Simulated assay, not measured.
Amino acid sequence: MTTPSKDPLHGVTLQRILEVLVEHYQWTGLAERIDIRCFKSDPSIKSSLTFLRKTPWAREKVEALYIRLQRGASR
């Protein structure tokens, strides 16, 4: 038997993370929490994924917000 991963991001794609965040916060709420132009100016999943895949610091912020959202939702 394998033990389940304790990594909250295990098995979750960046696209799914972004979809969950947009569904919960909408683009305006996401832009308020993470100051990234691709969330403010004509936002889309595709353009945001392109930026986040090339920009580690921004991806870390998005992943951290997702983890906080998941921990809050599981309480």
Rank of each mutant, 00 (worst) to 15 (best):
F39Q: 01
L65T: 07
D42N: 15
L65H: 05
F39I: 02
S44N: 10
R37V: 11
L65K: 06
S44A: 10
T55S: 13
K46T: 14
P43A: 11
C38P: 04
L69H: 13
S48I: 07
R33S: 01
Y66A: 02
K40C: 01
I34G: 00
D35C: 04
K61F: 02
Y66C: 01
A58G: 04
I45W: 02
V62R: 00
I67E: 03
R68F: 09
R71W: 07
R71Q: 15
L65R: 07
G72P: 01
K40Q: 12
L52I: 06
K54S: 14
F51V: 09
R53K: 15
R68Y: 08
K54N: 12
I67L: 03
K46Q: 14
I34P: 00
D35W: 02
Y66T: 02
R37A: 13
Y66H: 05
R53A: 13
A58D: 06
G72H: 09
E60N: 10
E63V: 07
R71A: 12
Q70D: 07
E32H: 06
S74T: 15
P56C: 05
I45Y: 01
R53C: 08
C38M: 11
K40G: 01
A58F: 07
L49W: 05
S74Q: 14
I36H: 07
R68D: 15
L52R: 06
S48L: 06
V62G: 01
P56S: 07
F39M: 02
S47Q: 13
R71K: 15
L52K: 04
R71F: 09
D42F: 13
L65S: 08
R59S: 12
Q70P: 05
I45F: 01
T55R: 06
R59K: 15
P56F: 03
L49R: 04
D35M: 01
S41T: 13
R75A: 14
G72V: 03
T55G: 05
K40N: 04
R37M: 09
L65N: 07
I67S: 04
K54W: 04
I34K: 00
I36L: 15
A58N: 05
K61L: 10
E63Q: 15
F39C: 02
A73D: 10
S44R: 08
K54P: 00
L49N: 02
I34Y: 00
R33Y: 00
R68P: 00
P43E: 10
E63P: 08
R53W: 00
R59I: 06
T50A: 11
S41M: 06
S74D: 09
G72A: 13
F51M: 11
I36G: 00
E60K: 13
I36D: 05
T50H: 08
V62E: 02
Y66N: 00
K46C: 03
S74F: 12
P56Q: 09
S41H: 10
R71H: 13
K54T: 12
S47N: 14
A73M: 13
T50L: 10
L65M: 10
R33L: 10
R59D: 09
K61E: 13
A64I: 05
W57P: 14
R68G: 07
E60W: 03
I45V: 09
I67V: 15
A73Q: 15
V62I: 12
D42R: 13
C38Y: 13
Q70G: 06
P56Y: 01
P43S: 09
R33Q: 09
S44Y: 09
I34N: 00
R53Q: 14
S47Y: 11
S48W: 05
R59G: 06
K40P: 00
R53P: 01
D35V: 06
V62C: 03
